[in-house]
Lab assay of single mutants.
Amino acid sequence: HNLTITQGKLFFHYNPKLCLSEIHKMEEVSGTKGRQERNDIALKTNGDQASCENELLKFSYIRTSFDKILLRWEPYWPPDFRDLLGFMLFYKEAPYQNVTEFDGQDACGSNSWTVVDIDPPLRSNDPKSQNHPGWLMRGLKPWTQYAIFVKTLVTFSDERRTYGAKSDIIYVQTDATNPSVPLDPISVSNSSSQIILKWKPPSDPNGNITHYLVFWERQAEDSELFELDYCLKGLKLPSRTWSPPFESEDSQKHNQSEYEDSAGECCSCPKTDSQILKELEESSFRKTFEDYLHNVVFVPRKTSSGTGAEDPRPSRKRRSLGDVGNVTVAVPTVAAFPNTSSTSVPTSPEEHRPFEKVVNKESLVISGLRHFTGYRIELQACNQDTPEERCSVAAYVSARTMPEAKADDIVGPVTHEIFENNVVHLMWQEPKEPNGLIVLYEVSYRRYGDEELHLCVSRKHFALERGCRLRGLSPGNYSVRIRATSLAGNGSWTEPTYFYVTDYLDVPSNIA
């Protein structure tokens, strides 16, 4: 807008934040220059609390790290170098490059900038070799853009010569660093050979998330399962459950009422301010606690030095998902009996873990797994792929695949051998790939016309006998059925096997 004052003059007093240069501009645009008398524009009460600059400061050096910015700028000295009290560095987070010096300023003089007072450097006698002032900004957020400017702080001049310097606002972004852990990993099994893994992005990506790394490792069953005799009275049979499938998407929606109208769909109840505040506090606490764990609990591995020492970490090797089922080394339970199943799973520490690289999504279907087997899954978020990966501390989750139908069934015939004193040795093959492992066998036998009897055969007993022995049988026709019990439950009964026990007292003698 054009402003013209045809008559009258300007009068400025007691404006401590208004620089004289701005008042002189007002004289020019209003056409009143030359009308004012000496005392109409006070030299001592206008701009006496402001830094009124008329020179431009330029930054000469900028260096960044993930949490620091090192700045240096060209030296500046007023005509009387004693008038320079120091520099004021202003900075704040700036997602967009549209910041002005006066953003967030209120009537009390406060604003949204963080201000650092910096002492002037030592003055050199040689004007050509003056030290460049600077400042190291610490405690910054990774991968965050900051708006920065600097200006001088000078003393009051009796001659009211307006001098000083100020830089333009520059924008500097800190470097990326390792992201925080992925949030809320959930693993479920939808079949006997697959596990579905879902997660949420890290709360602090500290860069642009480029991919996720998912490692999985087959877990050995508890050692007590191999040692305890679950045929003993009072000892509860062990059981394991597989990871249940995901709930429906509708039930997972946030901010939804727990109660549904019987007449149909209901609208979600909005969260109160107290609920939102509580969630923010919980989120802040979780982030602080995660940072504490990362800094205190997890110790970084030592990389190899120039002395030739090897990095103890196993090298990563990509495998196809079809090879995942046989990740671990199978060892027989008892070496003397080769027909026992290889369900003991000690994992070799030198073995390469299978892994998958996930790009542009937060889910993965891990296939080719062994049925009813526990897996430990390790999830890392990465925001750099080359020249070397920059990934987060791992988040861990466990899951067990679903049982395989008929995996616990005894394959092959049940054979028998009759000894003296009416002892019958029953023999059968253990299931080759049971659900988890076989903890015991149930032997059901009966003599024709009598009630059915049951015998429990422990895992250890089966390994020693290759089956079991029935003792003290009365003469007669017998039928026997056997079924295995694994961590997933009972298998199917075998087809009945028949044998006849004679009275050993009636056996004919070869003595003449």
Rank of each mutant, 00 (worst) to 15 (best):
F419R: 15
D291N: 15
H425F: 15
P349C: 12
V439Y: 14
R447M: 03
Y292H: 04
P205T: 02
P270S: 09
N435Q: 01
Q429Y: 05
D250L: 15
V424R: 04
R313K: 14
T415F: 08
A381T: 11
D323V: 06
T303I: 11
L321D: 04
P244G: 11
L426F: 03
F462A: 05
T307F: 06
V327N: 06
R318V: 13
R313W: 09
E247L: 11
F355W: 08
R316A: 08
E282F: 13
A399H: 12
D222Q: 04
R471M: 05
S262P: 10
S367L: 09
P349R: 12
T401I: 03
D503P: 15
Y498Q: 07
P205D: 15
A263L: 11
E389T: 12
L379A: 05
L228M: 09
P403L: 08
D261M: 13
E451H: 15
T347F: 07
L232R: 14
G374Q: 13
E389C: 06
E282P: 11
G234Q: 09
E265F: 11
N490A: 04
G436Y: 01
N206T: 06
D323S: 08
A488V: 11
K357Q: 05
D204A: 13
L473P: 02
S367I: 08
S283Y: 13
E388M: 11
V329K: 04
V423Q: 05
T485D: 10
N208K: 15
F337A: 04
G476D: 00
Y375H: 05
A463D: 14
T272Y: 11
A395N: 05
P475C: 06
L235F: 11
Y478A: 00
V327S: 11
S398Q: 14
I418Q: 07
A405D: 13
D409Q: 09
R446L: 07
L232G: 11
E430T: 07
E310G: 08
R286I: 06
R318W: 15
S223R: 07
V297Q: 15
E290V: 04
A395K: 15
Q219W: 11
K406W: 11
S486G: 13
F372A: 10
T415R: 09
A336G: 04
H211L: 11
T386Y: 02
G306N: 12
G207P: 05
S243F: 09
L437F: 03
S223G: 05
T288Y: 15
R319K: 12
F499Q: 00
S268A: 15
V501D: 02
E282C: 09
S344R: 13
C266W: 11
T343L: 06
R447F: 02
I276Q: 15
G412Q: 11
E417Y: 03
T307M: 09
E290H: 10
Y504M: 05
P403A: 07
F355C: 12
H294G: 04
D409L: 14
V214S: 03
A394R: 07
K460W: 15
Q380A: 11
S274C: 15
S474T: 10
T485A: 15
V443W: 01
F337Y: 12
T333P: 03
E258F: 13
I410M: 07
S305M: 07
T373C: 02
V414F: 02
G436F: 06
P403Q: 07
S474V: 12
P245H: 10
S342D: 05
S239G: 03
D385P: 05
D229L: 08
V443G: 00
G467N: 02
E442G: 09
D385A: 10
K233I: 11
G306M: 14
T497G: 08
S304T: 11
N295V: 12
P238S: 10
L440Y: 14
N360W: 15
S341Q: 15
Y212Q: 00
D385V: 08
N490G: 14
V501S: 02
N255R: 12
L437D: 13
F355A: 12
A309Q: 10
E495P: 11
S509P: 09
G489A: 14
S239L: 12
S283D: 14
H461G: 09
N360E: 14
Y478N: 00
K357R: 08
D222G: 09
P314E: 14
S320I: 10
P508S: 04
S262G: 12
S509V: 11
V480G: 01
A336K: 13
E310K: 01
C456E: 03
P332V: 07
L505D: 10
V324L: 09
E279R: 11
A407F: 09
C456F: 02
Y445H: 08
G476Q: 00
E249V: 08
S479T: 15
E388P: 10
V414T: 03
S320Q: 08
S257C: 06
V359D: 01
E356V: 13
I276N: 13
D291M: 12
G308C: 14
E351I: 15
L232V: 07
D385E: 13
P475H: 10
T415M: 14
Y441R: 01
A381P: 01
P238K: 08
V457P: 00
T347C: 14
H211S: 05
K287N: 10
E362R: 12
A399Y: 09
A263T: 06
K236G: 15
F298G: 05
E351D: 11
Q380I: 13
S257N: 07
Y212L: 03
S239Y: 13
V329R: 09
H425M: 05
R353N: 13
T288R: 07
L470M: 09
L237Y: 02
F246K: 10
E495Q: 07
H425W: 12
R240A: 02
P354S: 08
I276T: 09
L321Q: 15
V507Y: 06
P338G: 11
S320K: 12
F215I: 12
P475T: 09
Y500L: 10
N206G: 08
E224P: 15
P354R: 11
V397G: 09
D323P: 09
A488S: 06
I482W: 00
S251F: 11
A484L: 02
H454E: 07
I418R: 05
R447K: 05
P354F: 08
V331M: 09
S257M: 05
H425A: 14
D408P: 00
P349Q: 02
L440K: 05
A335M: 13
T373P: 00
R240M: 13
N339W: 11
A330K: 14
W428F: 05
P338I: 11
L277Q: 12
A336N: 07
S284P: 03
N477H: 06
A394G: 15
N206H: 11
Y375E: 00
T241W: 04
R459L: 12
S444N: 01
S274Y: 04
C231H: 03
A309Y: 07
R218K: 07
Q252V: 09
I209E: 07
T210P: 04
S474A: 10
E247T: 08
C267T: 09
L321A: 12
P431S: 04
P245K: 07
S492L: 14
R319V: 09
E378L: 04
L440C: 14
D408E: 02
T343F: 07
L505T: 12
E389Q: 12
T307Q: 08
I482E: 00
I410Q: 03
F298S: 07
V439W: 07
V358S: 04
S203P: 04
R301F: 02
V297A: 08
V324A: 12
S392Y: 03
T210L: 12
D503A: 07
K361I: 08
L453F: 05
A330V: 08
W493L: 03
V296R: 08
F499Y: 01
W428V: 00
E281K: 15
F246Y: 12
L455F: 10
N421D: 14
S341D: 05
I209V: 12
V359P: 08
L277C: 03
G306A: 09
R483N: 00
I377Y: 08
K302D: 15
V324M: 11
S458A: 09
P205H: 04
K460T: 08
G308W: 04
A220G: 14
P312T: 12
V443Q: 00
T340V: 06
N435C: 02
N421P: 15
V296I: 05
S304V: 12
D503F: 03
S320P: 05
S344L: 08
D222A: 14
R376I: 13
R301E: 04
D408H: 01
Y441M: 01
R240E: 15
T401G: 00
N422T: 07
P475F: 05
I410G: 02
G436W: 02
C456K: 02
C391Y: 14
W216G: 03
E417M: 06
